[in-house]
Design a protein around this nucleic acid. Structure first.
Lengths: 119, 119
DNA sequence: TCGATTGTTTTATGACTATTGAAATGTCGC
DNA sequence: GCGACATTTCAATAGTCATAAAACAATCGA
């Protein structure tokens, strides 16, 4: 994840609808969701969803594949971890006190037998 | 860090000059830097820097204090760790494989006796 | 204390980009 | 070809960015 990619990713994440889409796709997992399903879940018009999906895909945060009539979108998990890593590299420069609290948050969200708290 | 704050933070970070400013301020630490110093370091006009500084401050990523003739800006480290935590919460939902690589990156950037690799 | 100086912010302008819904177009299975 | 699904294009609105000029705030020397 270089700076250009990170900038695009930040821009993509700075829009409420796109953030909501990404959350849906991360929750859905590798199987992904069809554009129409996303549209229903997020509650926006199909053209609007399409616009934002292409934005997210350009930013490298999601990927798409055709499956018969539907186009299935799924989250690009490596891009997401790359973005988190970029943020840590840029924001931890000599300041572990920035990453410390973040790791605490990590423990409470990624431990397999823990419930998801914040959606 | 709620969603609104995260959206503002992402928007603030999606601009190259602002990202450069933030890096300078994180590197500078709690002492911070005067606006003029930032202007020189980043290589942009003072009015342009002022514009971006106020943007970053509105987003809660930096703070300012007056010191005689200069205004000193410094990074809001809790906001940064909050943003990382938000990203982890949102992107790790049931998918520890996203945060795993991020933590690996953390080890290589926040260990006190490690050199900073990417600036 | 007055005026000059330094440091920073505000304002104004113009170019550019983002966001949106509606309408048009493309793509696939039957 | 028809119908269903998905995407693109279009036009209008709004917001962002960069530049320069002006305004503002704080300090220092005469």
């Amino acid at each position: 994840m270089d700076e250009r990619q990170a900038l695009d990713a930040f821009a993509a994440l700075s829009q409420p609808t796109r953030l909501r889409i990404l959350r849906q796709l991360v929750t859905a997992g590798p199987d992904g969701l069809a554009a129409g399903v996303i549209s229903d879940a997020v509650g926006a018009s199909s053209s609007n969803i399409s616009f934002h999906l292409s934005h997210l895909e350009r930013a490298g945060l999601i990927q798409s594949r055709r499956e018969s009539r539907s186009i299935i979108y799924s989250a690009a998990l490596p891009a997401l971890s790359g973005l988190i890593a970029f943020l840590m590299r840029d924001c931890c420069q000599g300041h572990p006190e920035v990453c410390g609290p973040a790791v605490t948050a990590l423990d409470s969200c990624c431990t397999p037998n823990e419930a998801i708290v914040d959606v």
